[in-house]
């Protein structure tokens, strides 16, 4: 186990350096300058700005300086476009917003998606399956940016339950965005659960359990669910990272100051330090939750335990 964790840590480090380098190369290759604006900036001011942000140094030096700041100080530097903040401050401020909305959304998606998927699998190719599967697909087929404005129009403007946009009242402003975000993941979770459960229900041990006279509910939820949820667990690794790091569509429509919004803004503004910081944050989340999902799979699937985790992964 310790060997597995260590080798995972080392691999993650390699991946993070790779992500950093990829963003670095892409930003250096892309045309346009972060300081290009409507007003022409005088040459000497531009010179000062470039030297202030360290952009006048050679590319390898810039690459190493940024990387070593991450590796040894966990410091993302100063963004090019947001005066008065550091990258770390922006991430520390916006990640909790995204994580709150995403976390509630994920709980909602799990709470509705798993029962829907189990129900659809139990009623395979019957009316109940079609209804449940169609319901699950609503979240996938209607883009978030359609559902979000409709939800605002209905719940915020017509019914007046919530503020339509913004992040002023932390007690209520997360509800509507969370539900909208969760609806999308609900669809995927239900589909994956249905697929996993169908496979589980095909296994011989299920037939054995049923032939021993156990109730359908017990077989479904005790025997099959554990096997049937395995594909979902491997999906949830990257999905959890994505949902916690923030959906810029939801954050844009609801006007939330989350990480997703900063990421898109940084990509548009060529704000390399901020973009690097937010993508690295996302990368860490992906790696962490992938690791977590591997551990949970190990714990849920006795077959993986036999050969030792490191051997089987």
């Amino acid at each position: 186990m310790a060997r597995f964790i260590l080798s995972r840590l080392f691999q993650s480090l390699v991946v993070l350096v790779g992500i950093y380098t990829l963003v670095f190369v892409l930003m250096k290759l892309s045309p346009g300058s972060p300081f290009a604006g409507e007003k022409a900036v005088p040459a000497h001011v531009l010179e000062r700005m470039r030297s202030y942000y360290g952009l006048d140094q050679s590319l390898p030096v810039q690459w190493w300086r940024g990387l070593s700041n991450y590796l040894f100080h966990l410091d993302g530097g100063i963004p090019l476009k947001k005066d008065g903040f550091t990258v770390n401050e922006i991430i520390a401020e916006s990640l909790p917003v995204s994580a709150l909305v995403g976390g509630v959304g994920l709980l909602f998606a799990l709470g509705t998606g798993i029962p829907l998927g189990v129900f659809a699998a139990a009623r395979k190719n019957r009316v109940g399956d079609y209804v449940a599967s169609s319901l699950a697909l609503v979240g996938i087929c209607l883009p978030t940016f359609v559902i979000a404005p409709l939800a605002i129009a209905w719940f915020a403007l017509d019914l007046g339950w919530f503020a339509p946009v913004g992040w002023d009242d932390p007690r209520a402003d997360w509800i509507l965005p969370s539900l909208v975000l969760g609806l999308f993941y609900m669809g995927y979770i239900a589909r994956i659960t249905r697929g996993g459960m169908l496979e589980a229900l095909n296994q011989d041990y299920i037939r054995t359990a049923l032939s021993k006279g156990l109730s359908e509910g017990r077989v479904l939820f005790v025997h099959a669910l554990r096997h049937g949820l395995l594909p979902l667990v491997s999906y949830l690794g990257p999905a959890t990272a994505g949902i916690l790091a923030g959906s810029f569509v939801v954050e844009t429509v609801f006007g939330l100051p989350g990480l997703g919004m900063h990421t898109v803004a940084a990509a548009r503004d060529r704000d390399q330090p901020l973009l690097t910081g937010s993508i690295m944050t996302y990368g860490v989340l992906v790696l962490f939750f992938n690791f977590l999902s591997d551990i949970v799979q190990y714990w849920m699937n006795p077959r993986l335990r036999g050969g030792g985790l490191a051997a089987s992964l």
Partner: peptide, 20 residues
């Protein structure tokens, strides 16, 4: 590992950078 690196990047951000 290269696939892992790309996996750990937000898809849409990659497209945005490529598009710009």
């Amino acid at each position: 590992r290269i696939v892992d690196i790309l996996y750990a990047m937000p898809f849409v951000i990659l497209v945005i950078v490529l598009m710009s």
